[in-house]
């Protein structure tokens, strides 16, 4: 339904643009501060543009961060793929092959995504130590896969509920079994849901801090920990933490800028609807 631009629309447009500017203030401040030389960073002049651009903070931040970005990439990609894959299978089972007790199992699974991790932290690292998984990326991947299962299961289950049972029955009559139905019916329809789940999981895992700081040795630390090291250590001036923040944020921001549409579209289908 198309309406002509009215006073109302102009007011809406203006207000939205003003709010957008406000939302971008932290970006301005971050980029601005990151490009100043340490000597120029000062509370009273925080808003002024740098007198000359100092890219050195980015060079320093990059040389320090490169290995941790690699860790985060391995971690986030592996854990996202595994948890999404398992979530897809779980969702398929819960949705299309209800078994005795599955009605109880679902809420029990979903509950796992809401727990405060402080309530499991100590037993968790003791378990990882005992299984010799502590400290490296495999252990951290395992942790993120397990605690990612509830949300991926839930999201896929909601998506698969949209696929009519008649379609499955038709395939079954054609002789497809459990695996065949999944392979030929569910999988081809799983593209958009997979994207939503992957976007969600990737950003969650990339941004996670508590597990990252307590469960890794230095050579396996993800980027959030490296950033906290840079910002919270004896680092003196604000240019380095700001440049580091930009580097740490780039991958997930890029995902939201380029794939945000899918995410918005998927949200309703996924996390809201039971």
């Amino acid at each position: 339904m198309k309406r002509r631009p009215s006073l109302f629309s102009v007011a809406v447009q203006t207000l939205a643009v003003l709010l957008a500017v406000a939302y971008l203030i932290p970006v301005y401040m971050t980029l601005n501060t990151s490009l100043k030389s340490p000597a120029e960073i000062n509370l009273p002049t925080a808003w002024q543009l740098p007198s000359e651009l100092n890219w050195a903070s980015y060079v320093t931040a990059w040389t320090r961060f490169a290995p941790y970005i690699k860790n985060s990439l391995i971690l986030a990609v592996a854990a996202t793929l595994i948890s999404a894959g398992m979530g897809a299978l779980n969702g398929y089972v819960l949705c299309k092959y209800p078994f005795p007790g599955s009605a109880v199992v679902l809420p029990l699974i979903v509950f796992g995504m809401f727990i405060p991790y402080q309530a499991i932290l100590v037993p968790l690292f003791q378990f990882l130590q005992r299984t010799r998984l502590y400290g490296g990326l495999p252990g951290l991947i395992l942790v993120h896969v397990v605690y990612g299962l509830p949300i991926t299961t839930l999201l896929f289950r909601s998506f698969y509920a949209e696929i009519p049972d008649e379609l499955l029955n038709a395939a079954r009559i054609d002789g497809a079994g459990f695996a065949g139905v999944f392979r030929h019916i569910m999988l081809p329809l799983s593209g958009p849901p997979f994207l939503v789940v992957a976007i969600w999981q990737f950003t969650q895992i990339w941004n996670e801090f508590l597990f990252a700081v307590t469960l890794t040795r230095p050579d396996a630390q993800p980027i959030t920990v490296a950033l906290a090291n840079l910002a919270g250590g004896q680092a003196v001036s604000w240019n380095l933490p700001m440049a580091g923040s930009v580097l740490a944020a780039l991958p997930t921001v890029a995902i939201y800028v380029f794939l945000g549409r899918y995410f918005v579209r998927g949200l309703l289908a996924g996390s809201i609807k039971g």
Binding site: Y134, V213, T214, L215, A228, N229, G232
Partner: peptide, 17 residues
């Protein structure tokens, strides 16, 4: 090296280990 959090992060990692 573990820094940040007014030294608490380093303690957390060391004690965890």
């Amino acid at each position: 090296t573990v820094t940040g959090g007014a030294g608490v992060n380093a303690k957390a990692v060391l004690k965890t280990r």
